[in-house]
């Protein structure tokens, strides 16, 4: 098996999602190649990304809900203690950076932090393990060539997932900006700054410049949120894949690769936590800015 696929194929295989959509011949089904997946266009869905993100998100809400449902004011048990510790940590962060009053920000910060962390955590699972298992299952249950079963394990290496979240945050930013500042205030903020003028003529001249600058500023928020997370995790995943390539290079290279994988995984623990934390903190900060009259 290993000798039939090239290094490029191996990497490509690892970076392709299991895509369900309309094939070129008009039938609906899973894409059998990377090219076919990209030809499916917009009306296709990444089964693996959806599965892992919903599975991990469901795990998160179930565990936390279980702890919350039985939460008492008395002496907390192990799970409740852990959940309370996490929530206290989030709450402190929200209180530190968010000055307005809004009930949705803290739960959203909690969701982002834990969900992103769990999705990132999948990066630490050896890169071939789950895709191999899924390929084997696919061959067993659906009689398909395991080479054509694509399965990406880390949802946050799929820009759809990161953009999905950041666009959610972006919609809330716009919603709260308009709600707190009014439509006029929001547009004023977009067009009346950073170049201010008393003169109406100058105002008109500054209008497009300001709109361009503030527009970029506004659009940069969701872009930076999602691309930062995606980029970090994608790069991390790529390095894991490259390290995994060393296993086919003989015993010495394989042992060296194992050591490297361990080191990178340890380092990556920091990265995945940090990325989840950054996403959360920036969300809080952006929403705080949406609540401020002038910044």
């Amino acid at each position: 098996m290993a000798d039939t696929i090239t290094t490029g194929d191996y990497i490509k295989h690892h970076l392709t999602n299991m895509t369900f959509g309309q094939r070129a011949d008009g039938s609906w089904g899973l894409a059998h190649s990377t090219e076919e997946a990209s030809q499916m266009g917009f009306w296709a869905i990444h089964v693996d990304t959806m599965f892992w993100s919903i599975f991990l998100g469901g795990l998160f809400v179930l565990i936390f809900h279980r702890a919350a449902r039985s939460a008492t004011a008395g002496v907390p048990g192990g799970l409740q203690n852990f959940v309370e510790w996490v929530i206290d940590f989030i709450n402190e962060n929200v209180r530190g950076s968010f000055s307005a009053k809004n009930d949705i920000v803290a739960p959203m910060a909690l969701t982002i932090f834990i969900w992103v962390f769990l999705m990132n955590l999948m990066d630490l699972v050896p890169v071939d393990l789950i895709p191999l298992a899924v390929g084997w299952l696919g061959a067993l249950l659906f009689d398909v060539d395991p080479h054509h079963v694509y399965w990406k394990v880390v949802p946050t290496t799929d820009p759809n997932a990161t953009f999905g979240m950041s666009i959610g945050v972006f919609l809330l930013i716009i919603y709260y900006s308009i709600k707190n500042k009014g439509m006029g205030g929001f547009i004023g903020e977009l067009t009346g700054m950073p170049f201010e003028a008393k003169n109406p003529l100058m105002k008109v001249i500054f209008f497009p410049v300001n709109l361009l600058l503030e527009g970029v500023n506004l659009i940069a928020k969701p872009l930076s949120l999602s691309l930062r997370l995606f980029g970090n995790l994608y790069a991390g995943e790529m390095i894991f894949i490259l390290i995994a390539l060393m296993y086919s290079g003989g015993v010495i290279l394989g042992v060296f690769g194992g050591a490297l994988q361990f080191v990178w995984a340890v380092f990556h623990i920091l990265v995945i936590t940090l990325q989840a934390f950054i996403f959360m903190v920036l969300t809080i900060v952006y929403l705080d800015m949406a609540h401020q009259e002038h910044h």
Partner: peptide
């Protein structure tokens, strides 16, 4: 590829936030 997954993820995200707010937080 950017596709309908994005919208599905957006909905999933909204659902999880709603659930967390209502039943956890």
């Amino acid at each position: 590829n950017i596709n309908v997954t994005l919208i599905a993820q957006l909905i999933a995200f909204a659902f999880f936030v709603w659930f967390t707010k209502k039943f956890v937080w």
